[in-house]
Amino acid sequence: MKIILASTSPRRQQLLALADIDFIIQSVEVDESVLPNETPQDYIVRMVQAKATAAGQNLTGCYEAGENHYLVITSDTIGVLADGLSILVKPTDKADAFTMWQKMSNT
């Protein structure tokens, strides 16, 4: 079975390598916009499903002839403010990161 890591996260790559797992990295692009009134739990489930689906759709031609079993590993990381509703995703730039830090510290 081939293992696909649908993530470019250096930490996730490091964890699999430390576990001595042979894997292939496949970067996927999905719209990571938070939907109106979407809960953090719904958002993270939607992101992981979207990334796994995108990785699965890109499998054509990835493997040697006859290989038809694969495992796609993906995950996502978000921040959730103390209100339990406000979702923080990857900052777009330094100013965005600073704004997020301010929100997390309630300043």
Rank of each mutant, 00 (worst) to 15 (best):
89 V>W: 00
4 I>T: 10
24 I>F: 12
80 V>E: 07
60 T>P: 01
52 A>H: 06
66 G>L: 01
77 T>G: 02
100 M>P: 00
54 A>N: 02
4 I>L: 15
76 D>K: 04
94 K>I: 09
90 K>P: 07
86 S>R: 13
103 K>Y: 10
45 V>E: 11
101 W>Q: 14
79 G>Y: 03
24 I>S: 09
5 L>N: 07
27 S>W: 02
84 G>E: 05
19 A>M: 13
83 D>L: 04
31 D>V: 00
78 I>P: 03
19 A>N: 04
44 I>D: 09
42 D>Y: 05
54 A>D: 00
2 K>L: 04
104 M>D: 00
13 Q>W: 05
78 I>W: 04
68 N>L: 08
35 L>Q: 14
23 F>T: 09
19 A>E: 09
83 D>A: 13
35 L>D: 08
18 L>T: 09
15 L>Q: 13
34 V>S: 07
103 K>L: 14
43 Y>P: 00
77 T>I: 00
43 Y>N: 01
13 Q>I: 05
15 L>H: 06
100 M>H: 13
53 T>P: 03
38 E>V: 02
21 I>K: 03
48 V>D: 10
6 A>G: 09
7 S>G: 13
45 V>N: 14
99 T>S: 15
1 M>H: 11
95 A>W: 10
78 I>T: 01
93 D>H: 12
58 N>L: 11
95 A>G: 07
37 N>G: 12
65 A>D: 11
1 M>Q: 07
1 M>C: 08
9 S>P: 01
49 Q>S: 14
83 D>S: 00
65 A>N: 11
35 L>G: 01
17 A>V: 02
94 K>L: 15
98 F>P: 01
82 A>T: 11
96 D>P: 11
47 M>A: 00
67 E>D: 07
89 V>Q: 03
62 C>F: 05
78 I>L: 02
105 S>M: 12
78 I>F: 06
89 V>H: 01
38 E>A: 05
25 I>Q: 08
107 T>L: 13
75 S>R: 06
99 T>V: 15
9 S>T: 03
34 V>G: 04
29 E>N: 03
38 E>H: 11
46 R>Q: 04
78 I>K: 02
44 I>E: 05
61 G>I: 01
19 A>S: 11
95 A>V: 14
7 S>C: 12
9 S>M: 02
61 G>K: 06
66 G>M: 00
93 D>T: 10
84 G>V: 00
92 T>K: 13
30 V>M: 01
14 Q>Y: 06
26 Q>L: 15
35 L>M: 12
28 V>A: 03
38 E>G: 09
50 A>Y: 00
58 N>T: 01
76 D>L: 09
16 L>E: 11
85 L>C: 15
4 I>M: 08
100 M>N: 05
51 K>M: 02
64 E>A: 14
3 I>V: 15
90 K>G: 01
72 V>Q: 13
80 V>F: 10
39 T>L: 14
70 Y>V: 15
23 F>L: 09
32 E>G: 00
35 L>F: 11
78 I>V: 12
77 T>S: 07
60 T>N: 12
14 Q>I: 04
107 T>S: 13
93 D>M: 12
92 T>Q: 14
63 Y>W: 15
90 K>S: 02
31 D>Y: 02
43 Y>H: 08
12 R>M: 05
89 V>A: 10
101 W>N: 07
73 I>K: 14
85 L>N: 15
72 V>F: 11
77 T>V: 04
83 D>H: 03
